[in-house]
Simulated scan of single mutants.
Amino acid sequence: MSIYKFARGLVALALFPLYRVKVLGKENIPNNGPVIICSNHISNLDPLIVGITCPRNIYFMAKEELFSNKLLAGLLVRVHAFPIKRGMKDRNALRKGLGILEEGRTLGLFPEGTRSKSGELGQGLAGVGFFASRSEASIVPCAIIGPYKAFQPLKVVYGEPIDMEQLRANKTSAKEVTDSIMEEIKKLIENNRSESPIA
């Protein structure tokens, strides 16, 4: 068993009962080919929650500072994380992300770039639009609906892949593509927030 699968199983064992995680829409995630999971960001635990609820192995970007410790860096690499410099265009990270998609793998992105302290959806950055436009990946929106409180329901909703054909054909700007993706995440949140996760 790989370290990734072992870590994923261990985290799932801890977080599923702790937050009573309810997952909807997993069938919307393609079984094959490149995929970008685009989620809102309300907690530092979001990468773990997406990682254990998505049926595919996911590669995530992590802030470069986390890789300064060799032991931690070694672990992060084994669980499919790679570094990105925050606050600037990191060409190495962009190339790494595109390479992952070219290999037909799954990339997990949080378009807001940082977690929302209010819990409300913030503005998306152009980076996710760059990956969506420069690849042939299926773009799957994801909504994490909290709160992250022990033994209170947490809902994770995966929407249908976004139709990117026209956006790519029109060579729409990365920021506009991001805005379209954020609108789909917003709809998922609005359509599912009022419903009981225990349904």
Rank of each mutant, 00 (worst) to 15 (best):
F67S: 00
L109Y: 06
A143R: 06
L24P: 00
P83D: 04
K89W: 06
G113Y: 06
K26P: 05
A93T: 07
R56W: 06
T172Q: 11
K22Q: 13
A169W: 04
N32S: 14
S39R: 11
Q166I: 09
S2M: 05
V140L: 07
K187C: 02
S133G: 03
K187G: 01
V157D: 01
G51W: 13
L72I: 14
M1F: 09
P147F: 15
Q166E: 12
E184R: 05
E195G: 06
Q123W: 02
E165V: 10
F82A: 02
E64P: 00
R8T: 07
S138L: 08
I139E: 03
S2V: 04
H80M: 15
L45V: 15
K89I: 15
S135N: 11
S118N: 07
L24G: 03
G97N: 04
E112G: 10
D163C: 02
V128S: 11
P153Y: 12
L107F: 04
L109W: 14
L167K: 09
L167T: 01
P141M: 04
R78A: 10
N191I: 00
A150N: 08
T114F: 11
G87F: 15
V177A: 08
A132N: 07
P111C: 14
E190L: 12
M182C: 04
K187T: 08
V21T: 10
L66S: 07
G122S: 06
Y19F: 15
V21E: 02
Y158W: 12
Q166Y: 05
I29V: 04
V156E: 03
S43C: 11
G129N: 10
P147N: 14
L48T: 08
R86Q: 09
M182H: 00
K96G: 00
G104A: 15
K63P: 06
N191A: 02
R86C: 09
E65Y: 04
G104L: 15
E103N: 15
A12G: 07
V156W: 12
L75I: 11
S68F: 09
G119V: 15
N28M: 01
L121W: 00
K155V: 01
G74N: 14
K187W: 01
G87K: 04
R8L: 05
L98V: 03
S138P: 06
Q166H: 08
G119P: 12
I36G: 00
I49K: 05
F151W: 13
V11H: 01
G9I: 09
P47E: 12
E183T: 08
A81D: 05
L167F: 05
S68I: 13
E195V: 03
K187F: 06
Y4L: 09
P30W: 00
A93P: 04
C38G: 08
V128I: 14
N191V: 01
E184I: 00
K22C: 13
M61K: 08
G9V: 01
L125V: 04
P111A: 13
I181F: 07
L101K: 03
E120N: 09
R105V: 05
A143I: 05
